[in-house]
């Protein structure tokens, strides 16, 4: 009799606790986590790939500029030598030098602008995909809020257990690679 009542008590109180906990979780508990934006951004495979692409493009452009710059230096050296030796320099050579110098400066400026545009374009692409995958991660794992800590004070303190950066990096990289 005593055992029976004990079991009944345990079952009833268990049921009540479970229902209470369930209701509490459903209604009041907000599932929150945060990610370290810089860490996630740097750990994102797409960022690494596009960074390589960008460096390749930039190096290609730098090579062209280096070559033009070298030619200009040579021309300048020749012109200076002849000037120092008091040999008359034909005007078309000076014009050519001026023209090449102008072209070089124009190209240098253009490449600087193109590099900035390309960098911005890649950043936008990375952010678009990263944001999308973080949203999908949040929905899949029933998060109410995922905060982004970027060190500018938007998140001043949180327990380390709320940091899901590592999980997010694995998830977004798999999503990016198209792995189900």
């Amino acid at each position: 009799m005593k055992l029976k009542s004990l079991i009944t008590t345990i079952l009833i109180s268990g049921l009540i606790s479970f229902v209470a906990l369930f209701i509490y979780n459903r209604m009041y508990h907000t599932k929150t986590a945060y990610i370290e934006i810089k860490k996630v951004f740097n750990g994102f495979q797409m960022k690494k790939e596009l960074e390589k692409e960008y460096e390749k493009t930039q190096k290609g452009r730098d090579k062209i500029l280096d070559s033009l710059s070298f030619n200009l230096k040579l021309m300048s050296k020749h012109l200076n030598e002849r000037k120092n030796s008091k040999i008359e320099i034909p005007k078309d050579e000076i014009y050519q030098f001026e023209y090449n110098r102008e072209e070089f400066l124009k190209l240098k400026k253009q490449y600087q602008e193109d590099n900035a545009v390309l960098s911005q374009k890649y950043d936008n692409q990375i952010l678009a995909q990263l944001t999308q995958y973080v949203i999908e991660y949040g929905k899949k794992n029933n998060y109410d809020i995922i905060l982004g800590a970027d060190g500018n004070g938007s998140l001043m303190y949180s327990k380390e257990s709320y940091n899901i950066s590592e999980d997010i990096i694995v998830y977004i990289n798999n999503k990016y690679k198209g792995i189900d």
Partner: peptide
Amino acid sequence: QFIIGSFFTIVIT
């Protein structure tokens, strides 16, 4: 009984 029961259930939950 109730306290013991609750304790067990809370721990399990």
